[in-house]
């Protein structure tokens, strides 16, 4: 019946496995590798279900950033907000809101995907990382669609192309990563308490205004503190700069935040892995 007898011994134990961090890391990475096929399957399921039941389809991927941008373009044209940018303001805002939407999607994705999986999460065991990978794929899919906005902006406003544009994907990737890390870290609490999913849109709204999406970096104290405190700022600003000018801005800060983001990515995976059995126990069947 089986090709070879399995020599695996699984142990579920109450005793704490004295796992060295790098061993845990290897374990997580091997689970991610093992779950990639499942993740792809879940991603396909979500995308096909979403588009099969939608009349306007990918329009909804464009809609939010464009509407947000439209509001600010209107406000700026009436001089209600004044900010000077080195490219036409509409182009600046459209790219900004697109990048912001990518970030916001990344924050929302892990909790949404884990909550959606609740009915079978509590019933069968599968590599839980698959949920995160599939939500990551979902974010990437939306990024690809949204690049059409960026493409449109480049053509319409005749923005010159730079070699640095090739580095832009790295900037966008780090932005997604930061969003996913935040999303994964709030998932355990978010699964237990509905307060998290209720407050998330409000917090993201606040963060939107604390990040130079629709305005340039504030230079005057006290608002300039936000540039340092808000981790989204260097990643979003640099992703945009790489697209527009092809240069890095405030490189040391960018590298610092990027390093922190990559390290916390592994921490967040460990948190997710450790907390899921406890969550499942509390969610019941």
């Amino acid at each position: 019946m089986k090709d070879q007898p399995l020599e695996v011994t699984i142990t579920y134990t109450s005793e704490k496995l004295s796992q060295k961090p790098y061993k845990l890391l290897i374990l997580i990475l091997s689970d991610i590798m093992a779950s990639r096929e499942l993740a792809w399957r879940l991603f396909l399921r979500d995308i096909s279900a979403q588009y099969r039941q939608s009349l306007l389809g990918i329009f909804w991927a464009f809609f939010p950033p464009i509407i947000t941008a439209a509001i600010f373009i209107l406000l700026q044209s009436r001089n209600i907000i004044s900010t000077t940018t080195n490219i036409p303001y509409p182009a600046y805002v459209l790219i900004g809101t697109t990048l912001w939407q990518i970030f916001a999607d990344s924050v929302n994705a892990p909790l949404k995907s884990t909550t959606g999986a609740k009915p079978y999460l509590v019933k069968i065991y599968f590599p839980r990382e698959a949920l995160l990978i599939s939500s990551f794929l979902g974010v990437l899919f939306n990024v690809l669609i949204r690049m059409i906005i960026v493409l449109g902006v480049f053509i319409y406003f005749k923005i010159p192309l730079h070699g640095g544009l090739l580095l832009a994907p790295i900037g966008i990737f780090l932005l997604i990563l930061l969003g996913m890390v935040i999303g994964i870290l709030i998932t355990p609490i978010g699964m237990l308490y509905s307060d998290v999913s209720t407050s998330l849109p409000i917090i993201l709204q606040l963060l939107f205004f604390a990040t130079p999406v629709v305005y340039t970096l504030p230079e005057k104290f006290p608002f300039s503190i936000l540039n340092i405190v808000n981790p989204v700022t260097p990643l979003l600003v640099n992703a945009r700069n790489l697209m527009i000018n092809g240069v890095f801005d405030n490189t040391s800060h960018f590298i610092f935040i990027s390093t922190i983001t990559i390290i916390s990515a592994f921490i967040s995976l460990a948190v997710f892995r450790k907390s899921l059995p406890i969550i499942i126990e509390k969610l019941g069947t």
Binding site: V8, T9, Y12, T13, R45, K123, I280, E281
Partner: peptide, 29 residues
């Protein structure tokens, strides 16, 4: 799915459950 509070469970092989029939089904698909 959940871990014991005390003691341990050892399983020598692959465990599968006939519990969640139709897990992950999406009604639209």
């Amino acid at each position: 799915l959940i871990l014991p509070d005390t003691g341990n469970i050892e399983v020598n092989g692959r465990v599968q459950a006939l519990i969640a029939l139709g897990a992950g089904f999406n009604p639209v698909l």
